[in-house]
Computed example of a mutant assay.
Amino acid sequence: MNTISTRRSTPRRLGLGLVGGIGALALAACTGTGDAGSGENGSSAASSTVTLVTHDSFNVSEDVLAAFEEESGLTVRQIAPGDGGALVNQLVLTKDSPLGDVVFGIDNSFATRAIDEGVLEPYTPAGLADSAAQYAIGDTGALTPIDFGDVCINIDHAWFGNTGVTEPETLDDLTKPEYKDLLVVTNPATSSPGLSFLLATIGAYGEDGWVDYWAKLKANGVKVVDGWSDAYSVDFSGAEGNGPRPIVLSYATSPAFTVSEDGTSTRTGALLDTCFRQVEYAGVLAGAQNPEGAKKLVDFLVSDAFQADVADSMYMYPANTDIALPESWVEFAPLSPKPFEVAPADITAHRDEWIKAWTSTVIG
Rank of each mutant, 00 (worst) to 15 (best):
M1Y: 09
N2G: 15
N2W: 05
R7L: 09
R8S: 12
T10S: 13
P11F: 08
L14G: 06
L16Q: 00
L27W: 03
A28F: 00
A29M: 04
A36I: 14
S44G: 14
A45W: 13
S47H: 08
T49W: 03
V53F: 02
V53G: 00
V53Q: 01
T54H: 01
N59R: 15
S61R: 13
V64A: 03
S72R: 07
L74Q: 15
V76N: 00
I79H: 00
P81C: 11
P81K: 02
N89F: 02
Q90F: 04
K95P: 11
L99S: 10
L99M: 11
F104H: 04
A111Y: 06
A111H: 08
E117F: 07
V119F: 01
P125V: 14
A129N: 07
S131W: 11
A132F: 01
A133C: 06
T140P: 07
A142S: 13
T144L: 14
P145Y: 06
I146N: 00
D150V: 14
V151H: 01
D156S: 09
F160I: 03
G161Q: 09
G164I: 15
D172W: 09
D172Q: 08
L174V: 10
P177C: 12
P177Q: 15
V185C: 12
N187P: 09
P188I: 06
S191Y: 04
S196G: 15
L198S: 02
T201S: 06
G203N: 15
A204N: 06
A204H: 02
G221C: 11
G221V: 12
G227R: 00
D235R: 04
A239T: 11
E240I: 13
G241T: 12
G241Q: 09
N242Q: 15
V248N: 03
S250N: 10
A256I: 01
D262G: 12
T268R: 04
L271R: 00
L271F: 10
T274Q: 08
V279S: 06
G283M: 02
V284M: 07
G287W: 09
A288F: 05
Q289T: 07
E292Y: 12
K296V: 02
K296N: 11
S303F: 15
D304E: 15
A308W: 13
D309W: 05
V310M: 12
S313Y: 14
M314R: 01
Y317F: 12
N320D: 11
I323M: 14
I323E: 10
W329S: 08
E331N: 13
F332H: 01
S336G: 10
A343T: 05
I347H: 13
K356A: 05
W358M: 15
T359R: 04
S360L: 11
I363F: 09
